[in-house]
């Protein structure tokens, strides 16, 4: 799994002289963020409305029209080896990947933030041990997690979810740890402490809100990374199972016919994955500019 570039640890920002535009207005002026958001919104809408938008049943094989070329009548993007409509499968194919990526990354954000915060405010020993563990998870070949999970719970969406969480937690924990260490030394923490606030209260009500934007920004890019990653896992057969339509699965199912004159069967889902992943990256980068100017 690749890592989105790590955002710089919270630098002290001086208040600008002019009154700042609201975050929403700044977001609307950020071309990257708006484009990313629009693409994601469109893809989500299409995935939700797939039952109404799809011209055909995504799993209905049609022996009459096998491997229809792109642009043929009734099959805008052609059909696959079994005569299933590629466009319909494309519309359905993002559902599992999107839900799994968003939900698991959210879970990983919560877990990773908890670990990072705890490590930043715990004593030196506990923090050292915890972060060493995180370092290790950070570099561990996540494919082993996927393979082991598939052996235990059988291939499916749960394998994808578990692997995404395991892969994402260390990244989040590291970033939160680094930023929380910076925050910990700031005056407002000292002030809260001198007013008698408990460590737990300081962490939850003072430090956490200051880290929230970094966590959200990072989580956005992580969703993009994991859309690509889960597609690869499903292509290997560890994720979404046939006959369900899924972008990753479609890529591996279209592999055989890619070189024999029907490149679209595998290429359209690949482009869908690329587009959605890029959109989450754009949104993440845009949010960074908006929230951490």
């Amino acid at each position: 799994m690749s890592a989105p570039t790590v955002p710089a640890a919270g630098a002290e920002t001086t208040a600008p002289p002019r009154p700042r535009r609201s975050a929403l207005a700044r977001f609307a002026r950020n071309r990257e963020a708006v484009l990313g958001f629009a693409v994601i919104a469109a893809v989500v809408a299409v995935s939700v409305l797939a039952p109404w938008l799809a011209p055909h049943d995504p799993n209905a094989a049609d022996a009459e029209s096998v491997l229809a070329p792109t642009g043929s009548a009734g099959h805008l993007l052609g059909t696959d080896e079994q005569g299933r409509d590629v466009l319909s499968r494309l519309l359905y194919g993002g559902r599992t990947a999107l839900v799994v990526s968003v939900v698991s990354v959210t879970a990983a954000l919560v877990a990773g933030t908890a670990v990072g915060l705890f490590a930043a405010f715990a004593g030196r020993r506990a923090s050292g041990a915890l972060m060493r563990l995180v370092d290790l998870m950070f570099a561990f070949p996540v494919i082993l997690v996927a393979l082991s999970l598939a052996a235990v719970v059988r291939p499916g969406a749960w394998v994808l979810a578990g692997t995404v969480v395991f892969g994402a937690v260390p990244y989040v924990a590291r970033i939160v740890f680094a930023e929380a260490r910076v925050e910990r030394e700031k005056d407002y923490v000292e002030a809260a402490r001198s007013l008698g606030a408990s460590e737990a209260a300081i962490v939850c009500t003072e430090v956490l809100p200051n880290l929230a934007s970094s966590v959200v920004i990072y989580g956005t890019s992580l969703v993009g990374v994991n859309i690509v990653f889960t597609a690869s896992l499903s292509a290997l057969g560890l994720g979404v199972q046939p006959p369900d339509a899924d972008w990753g699965r479609m890529i591996s199912e279209g592999a055989k016919v890619l070189v024999t004159g029907s490149p679209g069967v595998a290429t359209f889902p690949a482009l869908a994955v690329l587009l959605v992943a890029l959109a989450f990256n754009w949104l993440g980068d845009g949010l960074r500019d908006v929230l951490n100017p």
Binding site: S232, W247, A255, L274
Partner: peptide, 16 residues
């Protein structure tokens, strides 16, 4: 673009 490409598809394209 490269870091967001599905590897599986990229492999197929390289073979092609």
């Amino acid at each position: 673009v490269g870091s967001n490409l599905p590897i599986y598809w990229l492999g197929l394209i390289i073979i092609y």
